[in-house]
């Protein structure tokens, strides 16, 4: 049996990589993929704890997270396509019309 510290560490590392990606990459699609990476890191932890406690609730939560991620991607990519059509760029630093 795998010690629970391993998935916690892996999840923390993957989540950190996702956070750094959101902070360092200024491309909307890349930021979006990093958000997916963070959701994935949380899912790993859910599944590991579900196995450790012998309860299926964690796996059901992963089911919901996957559903929300799918909805998020559908709307988010539609937004990105709409922004690209009007602005011709998906670099978030270019979208500063509301900046004073």
């Amino acid at each position: 049996m795998i010690p629970l510290a391993y998935p916690i560490l892996l999840s923390a590392l993957l989540f950190t990589v996702g956070v750094v990606g959101v902070m360092l990459r200024r491309n909307a699609i890349m930021m979006f993929m990093c958000v997916e990476l963070m959701l994935n890191a949380a899912n790993i932890l859910f599944v590991a704890f579900a196995r450790n406690f012998g309860q299926l609730d964690g796996q059901v939560f992963v089911f919901f997270v996957i559903t929300v991620a799918a909805a998020e991607v559908a709307v988010g990519l539609a937004l990105i396509v709409a922004i690209f059509r009007t602005r011709g760029s998906i670099e978030v630093d270019d979208l500063r019309d509301l900046q004073g």
Binding site: A50, Q59, L77
Partner: peptide
């Protein structure tokens, strides 16, 4: 490995199959 076969299949079909194809399509 963590005894979640249904979620493994969902992960492949929804994430690797659906979401990433959508990403590649938009890119």
């Amino acid at each position: 490995v963590y005894q979640a076969p249904l979620l493994a299949m969902l992960q492949i079909t929804v994430y690797a199959g659906g979401i990433m194809v959508l990403f590649l399509f938009v890119i």
